[in-house]
């Protein structure tokens, strides 16, 4: 009888939890859906993601095919965005380039988030000297202005798109770590963490099963806003010739080669820049909306 009652209680509890989770999800999507800017941002991001998949179908020409007879053609019905100095179709290159720009953006933010989260969790949970060492190291990383830390890393590793991903990722670590550290410190003081510890859970379980799921909101918001910065930084580094190398259709690199033809073919620089700007705008809009929906305390 006792066993049955406790079983019923457990089932009830599980159902109630599921209901709460469902309700939270509904509330999140309805808040996000009501935010027009976030919806526009979301649509822009989805549009770009679909381009990465549809590039082979949508691209009218081979993005690498050189055709010097057709070089520097103005936008027309045959070449919607014109052709570059080597006669390559700019639209096709931009479509394929979406894979590189989004790829670098997502991978570098994932890289930064992964290490930043671990460092932040460890610093926030253990505190004391562990926190001091990690926090001071993060301060040092933040003492490098803007993309200079990324530049320093590339100077050592050498210019390439993969190294740009690593460099931009490293440059994102302190931002994630700081946010995670703060939230971890807040949560570890709550009673339920004490209760779990009393029940015999080890540090690993407490950190990853009980603290981490509860600090996801600020991480997601930061991740989304960080994607905008990461895409801008990666494009900037490729623009400087330190990232994607020719003939790669990375947008920053395309913009850089377009700069040399500003007098005769300004569209060579205009279209890649426009693609970067709209994508970054999408992430900024979506990130702002996510912040309002997920974490009302962070609302401006």
């Amino acid at each position: 009888m006792t066993v049955n009652t406790s079983l019923v209680n457990t089932v009830d509890l599980v159902l109630a939890r599921k209901k709460i989770r469902r309700e939270k999800r509904r509330l999140f999507f309805s808040t996000l859906g009501q935010n027009k800017a976030a919806v526009v941002g979301g649509i822009i991001i989805l549009f770009y993601i679909s381009l990465t998949f549809l590039a082979p179908i949508l691209a009218p020409y081979d993005p690498y095919a050189i055709n010097l007879q057709d070089k520097l053609q103005f936008p027309s019905w045959t070449h919607w965005m014109g052709t570059d100095d080597k006669g390559r179709d700019i639209l096709s290159r931009i479509l394929y380039g979406s894979r590189l720009s989004l790829g670098v953006g997502f991978s570098s933010v994932f890289f930064g988030a992964f290490f930043g989260i671990i460092l932040g969790l460890v610093a926030g949970y253990y505190g004391k000297w562990v926190d001091t060492i990690i926090s001071r190291s993060l301060d040092v990383m933040l003492a490098f202005p803007g993309i200079l830390l990324a530049l320093a890393i590339i100077s050592a590793l050498g210019p390439s798109l993969i190294n740009v991903t690593i460099a931009v990722g490293v440059f994102s670590i302190p931002l994630f770590a700081r946010i995670v550290r703060g939230s971890t410190m807040e949560i570890k003081q709550l009673e339920y963490i004490d209760a779990i510890r009393t029940l015999g859970a080890n540090d690993f379980t407490i950190i990853f099963r009980h603290i981490f799921p509860n600090i996801l909101s600020p991480i997601i918001v930061q991740g989304s806003l960080r994607l905008a910065t990461a895409i801008l930084s990666a494009a900037g580094l490729s623009f400087l010739g330190l990232g994607a190398q020719p003939p790669s259709p990375e947008w920053g690199a395309m913009l850089s080669s377009g700069r040399d033809f500003l007098f005769s073919a300004p569209y060579m620089a205009i279209f890649p820049g426009l693609m970067i700007s709209v994508l970054v705008l999408g992430f900024n809009l979506f990130g702002d909306g996510l912040r309002d929906a997920l974490d009302p305390r962070m609302k401006k």
Partner: peptide, 18 residues
Amino acid sequence: ALLGISLPSFWLGILLMY
């Protein structure tokens, strides 16, 4: 302002120059 945050500086520079 939102556009200002989203435009890459190197692109804005090129546009202004143009």
